[in-house]
């Protein structure tokens, strides 16, 4: 039982929080885990990616090989496409549809979505809008994690616990809102899969 996933987004969008949540869940439940982060040079606004590998067996490499990732989880549509070379043919691309435009030549968003829809298995969601609806505008990253959760070989309860551990310092309200965010993300995907 192994999941290799690539996390993608822009600096400051909370990718490393997703990674930390899954990391905590792995730590508390005796999974093996390797998570390699690439920080760009800039503090904010550059591309950020992490390779995350979770398994019940020992893991050798910190990096995922080309065309072997089970999942790409992205909090930004263009960044999700940037690492498509890692995804194997049956892998899933789960991405937020809300663009982060901090460059003058950002591509046409409809064209980006069209590219995403060319990927055999994909889930696209407007996590920012969903976050706003539950008054948790800072939790769009966790909604994306929720949407990816059905594809991660780890009990949903454990991911919830991960959220609890990561956010516990910030108080019960923050924990609860993020657990809710996780849930609506998961429900979004479940609905798609059952449709």
């Amino acid at each position: 039982m192994k999941t290799d996933l690539i996390l993608a987004g822009v600096g400051g969008q909370g990718i490393l929080t997703i990674a930390a949540t899954l990391g905590m869940a792995a730590l508390n439940n005796d999974f093996y885990l390797k998570q390699s982060e690439v920080h760009g040079m800039s503090q904010r606004g550059g591309e950020v990616q992490a390779h995350l590998r979770i398994s019940d067996k020992e893991i050798a490499s910190d990096l995922i090989a080309d065309k072997t990732a089970d999942l790409i989880v992205s909090v930004e549509p263009m960044e999700g496409l940037r690492y498509l070379n890692y995804l194997h043919d049956e892998g899933w691309l789960i991405t937020n549809s809300r663009p982060y435009k901090n460059i003058p030549n950002y591509p046409d968003v409809d064209a980006l979505i069209a590219e995403i829809e060319k990927v055999k298995n994909h889930i696209v969601l407007d996590a920012d809008a969903m976050a706003k609806e539950i008054k948790a505008s800072r939790s769009s990253n966790i909604i994306v994690l929720g949407a990816a959760s059905p594809f991660i070989n780890m009990d949903y309860k454990l991911i919830e616990e991960g959220i609890r551990t990561i956010f516990s310092r910030k108080g019960e309200d923050v924990v609860n809102i993020n657990i809710k965010a996780l849930k609506i993300g998961r429900e979004f995907t479940e609905k798609k899969l059952n449709a």
Binding site: V10, G40, M41, S42, G45, G46, E47, D66, K67, M78, E79, L81, R82, Y83, L84, N85, Y86, L87, N102, I103, N105, Y106, P107, A111, L112, E115, K118
Partner: peptide, 14 residues
């Protein structure tokens, strides 16, 4: 190697 779509543009540090 998997191919990435041509629509991508870099997001250089700034």
């Amino acid at each position: 190697a998997g191919k990435n779509p041509e629509i991508l543009v870099p997001r250089p540090p700034a």
